[in-house]
């Protein structure tokens, strides 16, 4: 359940909210050439209700399911139109009730290239950008995907194509829209059969449905302060529902809508050091937890090469 956003968000900043600031895959911000932006984010997510298919319920054998993660990320601007980024999280999961064992480990490496292919710096409504992103996710840790909802991820390789449209006024107000489509590779289980979607499959290979996502955010971004609100929607293009009173299965149809906000502030006189905090709440879903997520972190921006203006 927690891997719902791991699946489609890419940079570490996105973890808790789905859309965030500061040079993530799905925002409209591009770093200036030669800039490195890196940091560490702690994210905390919990739910005590979830959707078993479309049925909202609690589960006395889980209580509250908590997922914590620590993300290390780095973005580098090859040019001001091409940024490359990578991130790796370490994830912990635990259930407050019942007897199920906690899980933890290194999850998936994400690598992305972000290219701003159309820019209008001085239109009547502001600075307009259209951005394309290609990103890939590669499971790093050899964790099991077969212990949902406590598995730390889905253990699927992923490829995401994303388009983002961004408008920012001279006064600092902005609107950002982003949509992505994710293809996932087969997941290999440790067992020779599994049952999903009404069928018993005599293989260890699980076909994973594609995922589409859509995000809209709006806010203010100037003078080292950024504040925004956003809505994120994910739709999985296939997969079965969690069966009645069953554990979730890795290829379940995981859908959700979340609303949240983010604040980021570049601390004056500390030369590029910034703090961020974000929060999001799931208000609609299927086969996911009714989760509240927060994240907090420190980021650092440094111009490695001072020759500017690409």
């Amino acid at each position: 359940m927690r891997h719902v956003w791991v699946v489609f968000t890419i940079a570490a900043l996105c973890t808790a909210t789905g859309t965030a600031r500061a040079q993530t895959v799905d925002d409209g911000i591009m770093l200036a050439k030669g800039t490195l932006f890196a940091g560490q984010i702690y994210a905390h997510d919990d739910w005590d209700e979830y959707w078993e298919g479309e049925l909202k319920r609690d589960n006395g054998n889980i209580g509250t399911l908590t997922t914590q993660s620590n993300h290390w990320f780095g973005n580098y601007a090859v040019t001001s139109r091409l940024n490359v980024m990578g991130s790796v999280p370490y994830v912990w999961t635990r259930a407050s009730q019942g007897v199920l064992h906690e899980m933890h480990g290194v999850q998936d490496l994400t690598l992305a290239g972000k290219y701003s292919f159309w820019e209008v710096p001085a239109s009547p409504i502001g600075f307009i950008k259209a951005i394309g992103v290609l990103s890939a996710g590669l499971p790093l840790g050899d964790y099991t995907p077969d212990f949902q909802p406590l598995s730390i991820g889905s253990a699927a390789r992923r490829l995401t194509a994303r388009g983002t449209f961004n408008v920012q006024t001279a006064a600092g107000w902005f609107v950002n829209g982003t949509t992505g489509y994710t293809w996932r590779g087969h997941v290999t289980l440790d067992r020779p059969y599994y049952f999903t979607m009404g069928q018993l499959f005599f293989t260890d290979e699980v076909s994973m449905p594609d995922i589409a996502d859509l995000g809209v955010s709006s806010g203010y971004n100037k003078h080292g302060l950024m504040a925004q609100g956003q809505i994120t929607v994910q739709r999985t293009k296939g997969g079965g529902d969690i069966r009645r009173q069953d554990m979730p299965f890795v290829s379940n149809r995981m859908n959700f809508s979340k609303a949240g906000g983010l604040v980021m502030y570049e601390i004056p006189k500390l030369g590029g050091l910034a703090a961020l905090y974000s929060i999001a709440h799931t208000f609609e879903g299927r086969n996911v937890g009714l989760a509240t997520s927060m994240s907090a972190g420190l980021t650092y921006r440094i111009r490695l090469f001072s020759k500017v203006n690409p």
């Binding site: 050899d142 440790d190 067992r191 059969y193 005599f202 554990m247």
Partner: peptide
Amino acid sequence: TREQLAIVYKWADGASTPTPPGHWNI
């Protein structure tokens, strides 16, 4: 170890499975 965990899941045969007797039929 990861190998031991794989053995656990190979033989879990819990809910939504043909159960251990079914596994031996397979």
